[in-house]
Design a protein around this nucleic acid. Structure first.
Length: 411
DNA sequence: TCTGGGGTCCTAGGACCC
DNA sequence: TCTGGGGTCCTAGGACCC
């Protein structure tokens, strides 16, 4: 029998912003951007939630619902920093800690009784240590499975602790709406409602064969979840260190839709650079590059290409994604969003590199140097892709990577 | 309501191979 | 050449999560 903690930071982004600006405390605060910008709410303070504002809501809608709210731009570096601090606190309670996202974690607390006492006492100690060392509140769910621990931390919010005694899982879940089950979103909820299934208990009372016929593999997992089991998928794994990422991507939504080729291609260059940098940070090489393109009417396409050889070099990514872009953009149609995604990672680089005259090695050195400059002076310090200069050289003999640069400066 | 950005996992069809 | 079945890789799209 396991003891799993799910620790979820309360209104994380808002709470971090309050540490930097205590005058925000207790006020309706919306993090994610300005009231008249394109974008959605990343986090809303509890005061703002009273007006109906919630995360994922368009900023302009939030403004209509709560015009007096204070709109704050997000600060990802701050959140990463506080996420690390929280992680450090959690590590002092169990060696088996797994961050599930920037503001939530699972701990396997099985067998820690001698050290930390029974679950509720350990949770209280954790809660006060978290507040003392980060200034942030969290909620803790305790159960025998990840799934029930997660649902119970949600029920404990804000700033609470909830322990589901072993054996009581199904009883705890039964009265909750099906939407409370992680993995059940808008679409599944609607499908379940159409079958007259509104509460987890309705699901639990069904023959699992019925759900399997209806929803396939997912239906079977759903039957297990309704009983409080970590049935299938990611939930069904041991709590431990996170593995390497399976994809790395960046995307950008324009403030104003555009059909300007220079703007579009320099954006792709910039995105390729950002992705390349992350690949190098992780020591990963990618074989598959994907372009994402969203038109003004919100129709979205993705186009991917897999290469023979894995790479982590910006210009290789840009070259591939530009081919995809030129081959798939319906020229003249205004674009709302562009994205660059990489996947199919390899840890080590292919042998082929040794054979190509070392030009890749030189590039890697240059890129690492550029990364260090960015670390020191900020993201805008170096731009190999000549991002916003708006013009690109074609691939030639002298310029095999198709790099920009050596262009006369236009500014 | 006028819809971000970063991810994960699943499905389904076609290519290709044995 | 009138033809099965399985495995794996690739691509596109979609649901979902924070």
């Amino acid at each position: 029998m396991k003891t799993i903690f799910h620790v979820d930071m309360d209104a994380f982004f808002v709470s971090v912003e309050e540490l930097f600006d205590p005058s925000l405390r207790g006020k309706p605060v919306v993090v994610g951007g300005q009231y008249d910008e394109r974008g959605v709410v990343s986090a809303a303070s509890y005061a703002a939630r009273k007006f109906g504002v919630h995360s994922a809501m368009p900023l302009r809608t939030a403004y209509k619902m709560c015009p007096l709210a204070i709109f704050v731009d997000g600060h990802p570096e701050r959140y990463r920093e506080y996420s690390k601090r929280a992680y450090t606190v959690l590590q002092s309670f169990s060696p088996l800690v797994e961050m599930a996202s920037i503001d939530e974690a699972y701990l396997d607390m099985t067998g820690t009784e001698r050290l930390h006492g029974p679950p509720l006492r350990a949770a209280h100690a954790l809660h006060s240590a978290m507040h003392a060392r980060t200034g942030l509140n969290c909620s803790v769910g305790i159960a025998t499975s990840r799934l029930v621990a997660k649902v119970s931390s949600d029920q404990a919010k804000p700033n609470g602790i909830l322990w589901i005694i072993p054996g009581q899982e199904a009883r705890f879940l039964a009265p909750l709406e099906v939407r409370k089950i992680p993995g059940v979103g808008k679409v599944t909820e609607k499908n379940l409602h159409e079958l007259g299934l509104r509460r987890v208990g309705d699901l639990a009372a069904l023959d699992e064969k019925y759900l399997e016929r209806r929803f396939g593999k997912w239906g079977l997992a759903l039957a297990g979840k309704s009983q409080g089991l970590d049935a299938g998928g990611w939930f069904d794994t041991e709590v431990g260190e996170r593995e390497d990422p399976k994809s790395i991507s960046h995307e950008h939504t324009f403030n104003v839709d555009t059909a300007d080729v220079d703007t579009l291609e320099s954006t792709l260059a910039k995105l390729s650079e950002m992705v390349g940098r992350r690949l190098r940070e992780h020591g990963l090489y990618t074989r598959t590059v994907q372009l994402k393109l969203r038109y003004s009417d919100f129709t979205t396409i993705t186009r991917a290409h897999s290469m023979d050889r894995a790479t982590q070099i910006d210009t290789d990514l840009f070259e591939q994604v530009r081919v995809l872009f030129r081959g798939n953009w319906k020229a003249g149609m205004t674009i709302r969003l562009l994205g660059v995604q990489t996947s199919s990672f390899e840890k080590l680089q292919g042998q082929m590199d040794l054979l190509d005259g070392g030009h890749h090695d030189k590039w890697r050195e240059a890129l690492n140097a550029a990364d260090r400059l960015r670390d020191k002076y900020g993201e805008s310090a170096v731009s190999l892709a000549a991002g916003m200069k708006g013009r690109f050289r074609e691939r030639t003999h002298e310029n095999p990577a198709g790099l920009p640069g050596k262009e006369p400066r236009r500014d």
